[in-house]
Simulated scan of single mutants.
Amino acid sequence: MSYDYHIGVDYHKAYTYLLVQDRGGQVLRSGKVKNDPGSLAGFLTPYLENSHAVMEASRNWTVMYDWLDELCDDVVLAPPLKVKAIADAKIKTDKIDATILAHLLRADLIPESYVPREAARALRQALRERIFFVRLRTMVKNRVVTIFDRYPEQTRALREMTDLFGKIGRGQLELLSVSTIDREHIDRAIAFIDDINQRIHASEKTIRRFSADNADVKRLKTIPGVGEFFARLIAAEIDDVTRFRSAKKLAAYAGLVPSTYASGGKCWNGRLIKTGNKWLRWAFVEAAVPAMRAEPALKFDYEHLKVTKGTNRAKVVIARKLLTIAYQVLRDQRDYECRDALERRSNLSRLS
């Protein structure tokens, strides 16, 4: 579609720099506006008919994107790294950034990012909150364990406990003979952990509320190793599986493919690519261990791969297998069946 106005948007925390071009690249208007819908509409009002805008997927991009979506005929979300690779500049200002974005938009050279649906956005926010609280709880627990270094003889048995902050572990912590200041630190840390636990439970209720009717979550939970939390995380990050033509495309999006260098007829594969969706990569890698415990076939594959590839690389391969399973489950809209069940079904069909 051909547009009359091309709008480059350089979005910041307190203000946004806007630049409007016509079909020929002539700058019609540029300048800063406050980050509120009224100021944005006032600036763009003469140029809204048959217009489209582009902005980078920066921090809290959803705010400006939604405002623009109400005003313009089309809004394009651009990945910052890819735009930078196309139009790297030695001198960087708000005006230059907005101008480059407008030029690339007019020339149809913007590598467009996917814009998740409203339900997926809300679920992602709820999931991020829980992840934050869990990581905060881990930090507090680690501070308590650090105190053990000052009492090696007393705490040797405590270091071996699998649930140090459970009922039995806390009873042992109370019996520790430590200095006054260390006792205060331990007691405050335990009280803080209890407070964080309450917030984690509250955030889990929010997550369940925002994904109660999500059929994809129910299907993903049938995959070995993928529990309640990871099923919701994977569903929210993928959102619409049809935007990936194959499982390989999804693996590249998740960052579960090796970096590749090819030159002179030779090809080298290195570590996993650094770009990609870190949340999806983390979910599948973390799910690999419980998946191997749940399904012997995956465990067999892992043990076989570990001999030649090593522990970490073999774990990544299993994570990639789980991703492929998740793609097929979501694409075909069906629950997962383990290999043994599929073989039994195949044998029954042949007998009949």
Score class of each variant (00 low, 15 high):
I238W: 11
F300W: 09
K274C: 11
L330S: 12
L71F: 07
R271G: 06
R320E: 00
L330R: 03
E56H: 11
K309F: 01
G276N: 08
Y15D: 03
F165W: 08
R150V: 00
L48V: 08
Y151K: 10
L127M: 09
G25W: 01
F43Y: 10
I223K: 05
I96Y: 04
T275S: 15
D149A: 09
A189M: 02
G42E: 07
L272W: 12
R209Y: 05
S179C: 05
S203Q: 07
D108W: 01
A235D: 09
A247I: 01
Y5E: 00
G227R: 10
M1E: 05
G227M: 06
M55E: 04
L28I: 10
D22K: 09
L71D: 14
G8N: 09
N60C: 15
H185V: 05
A247K: 08
K248Y: 05
D97P: 09
K92D: 12
L40E: 03
W282P: 00
V115S: 12
G25T: 01
R188T: 08
V145E: 14
L233N: 03
D4V: 00
E184K: 13
I193Y: 02
F165N: 11
A102Y: 04
L44A: 05
R344Y: 05
H6E: 08
S179P: 03
T308M: 10
F210H: 15
D240V: 09
I181L: 15
E295C: 13
S51E: 01
Y336R: 10
T146E: 15
G225K: 04
L77W: 12
G42S: 04
L280Y: 11
K205H: 06
V145L: 11
L173F: 13
R143E: 11
P80Y: 14
L109G: 04
V329E: 03
R313I: 14
G169A: 13
D69G: 12
D216C: 08
L176S: 08
R128Y: 04
L101H: 01
L48P: 13
L233D: 01
E112F: 03
M1D: 04
I196R: 03
R137Q: 10
R208L: 13
A126N: 02
L127Q: 04
